[in-house]
Amino acid sequence: MKKATNEIKLKLPALSINEGACRAMIAAFCAQVDPNIEELADIKCAVSEAVTNCIVHAYGGRGGIIYITVGIYEGRLIRIEIRDRGCGIADVKEAMQPLFTTDSTGERSGMGFSVMESFMSGLRVHSTVGRGTRVSMWKQLS
């Protein structure tokens, strides 16, 4: 992939209170390429899902660091990478199935990856058990 024309890197503690901050910061950065309201809402929702996965699943609510890179590329393409150094996912394909969740409280829907896939133009997930997970997603703006 070509070099980004502009890029930010964020490094945040995996605290749930930071979910809103992540959405707001990334949306503010993406606003410079003038996405429409729908596109911006899509990005915010996908980011929220990925960041929540880091907090809830990767680090199991025990805290850790979330690494986020957002790049703007020629042709109105936005690429977002959200990475953790948490527990990793043993079976990524299974984890990406709609309604799949390891939660037993009935309070998680298991739709996080489905929402990311649906609201972004592309999604790639790479994970190693014990090492962490990297979610790469991109959005082609109109």
């Binding site: 959405r23 809402a41 915010k44 929702c45 929220s48 899902e49 929540t52 409280t105 009935g106 309070e107 998680r108 829907s109 739709m111 996080g112 489905s114 929402v115």
Partner: peptide
């Protein structure tokens, strides 16, 4: 103003 899939979890939990 905003809802991600956590809202879905909230709804399913309340339905239960």
């Amino acid at each position: 103003r905003f809802m991600d899939s956590s809202g879905l979890g909230l709804i399913l939990g309340r339905l239960a």
